[in-house]
Design a protein around this nucleic acid. Structure first.
Lengths: 186, 186
DNA sequence: TGTACATCAGTGAACGCGCGTTCACTGATGTAC
DNA sequence: TGTACATCAGTGAACGCGCGTTCACTGATGTAC
């Protein structure tokens, strides 16, 4: 069946977006090509009309995430106190429970490294975030603080998503948030 | 072939220790039963003379890690300034590059959660660490600070292991270390 | 305007592979007679 | 002391399964005549 001119590009984009959500929610390894294509409404064979391999999809998803400014993690770098806003949005139960539209670093960064494909895409995600922090901070120790802040945020989300005790998970988010706001807000 | 009385327990322990290293270095999913048993010098079939399943091994490894005090992450909670010592040891290139004998949280915690088996073992690892911090801190905001400190340490190690640029990786460790020592040391 | 052909996104069976797991079997050693 | 048997850690072939990937094929539509 032949489709309208934009049809392929639209399908392509739907695959990328679904993968982007699943990679962040379930991880890359746990996202199979077959179930991914089923979710998009196609059979697995069609995948290779759009991507040379799963790794090629991973790269495109990373580029797509780096591009988008709509994810909660990126959207909050605005307002009077952008750092405070970012912390407030990042360390919420909502962000913890909706990994599929959240920051890719807590879920994907380590897996990308363990997969052994050291593409510079991960570095870009980290560097872009650090640059945004440094711009918003504009302090003497902005460089160190940006790094420490990002590490705290990512670590808190990793731990909050890892523990099974909901109360402990909430405590991790709230305590880190309080502590960071007392020390890191500009 | 029948073996000496302690032989089975020794083999059992060798499997647990090898798995403990591999789980932390490569991840649980990436550690296959076959290659694990090969590393111990046995065939894969023998695995089930020691463990009911791979999940049973995972649980025993977690218990083993919680028990051991020899890993660098736990060993440093001593001396005049135990928090400082801990930070100094945790945020080193050595710890980053020897995940197999390091803290299990950066590598294993998220994967345990993603596997969907919410055993309380992960929670114990986190709670034990937090308790140790609180005891060493003994300050008014010790609870918040313990959580934020652990989050920073875990996040920094996750990020340092994720980026491919070695200089950036070193910078993540050093900047977080400087920032934490200036604010979190007791 | 009507017919023949080219295009190509998507189909679905099949590929080799490694996974966790099962199980009939081996054979060196400890124990019983 | 010598022989027969029981034990059981470890062997290795085989299981079903899902993975990523390949490929001959389909068939609705756009284009050419």
């Amino acid at each position: 069946m032949r489709y309208s001119e934009s049809h392929k590009a639209e399908t392509h984009q739907r695959i990328v977006m679904e993968a982007s959500r699943r990679f962040r929610r379930d991880g890359i390894g746990a996202t199979g090509v077959q179930s991914l294509m089923e979710a998009v409404g196609l059979t697995h064979g069609a995948f290779y009309a759009h991507f040379a391999s799963k790794d090629a999809l991973v790269e495109e998803v990373l580029r797509s995430i780096a591009r988008e400014a709509e994810n909660p993690a990126a959207a909050a770098i605005v307002g009077d106190d952008p750092i405070r806003s970012f912390i407030d949005v990042y360390l919420t139960p909502l962000h913890r429970d909706t990994a599929e539209i959240g920051c890719p670093l807590p879920t994907m960064s380590l897996e990308l490294a363990q997969r052994g494909s050291p593409s510079p895409e991960t570095d870009h995600l980290v560097v872009d975030r650090l640059d945004a922090f440094e711009r918003a901070l504009a302090r003497a120790d902005a460089s160190d603080q940006s790094v420490a802040l990002l590490a705290s945020l990512v670590g808190a989300l990793v731990l909050a998503r890892s523990v099974s005790d909901r109360a402990l998970s909430d405590r991790i988010l709230e305590a880190t948030r309080r502590w960071l706001l007392a020390r890191a807000s500009s």
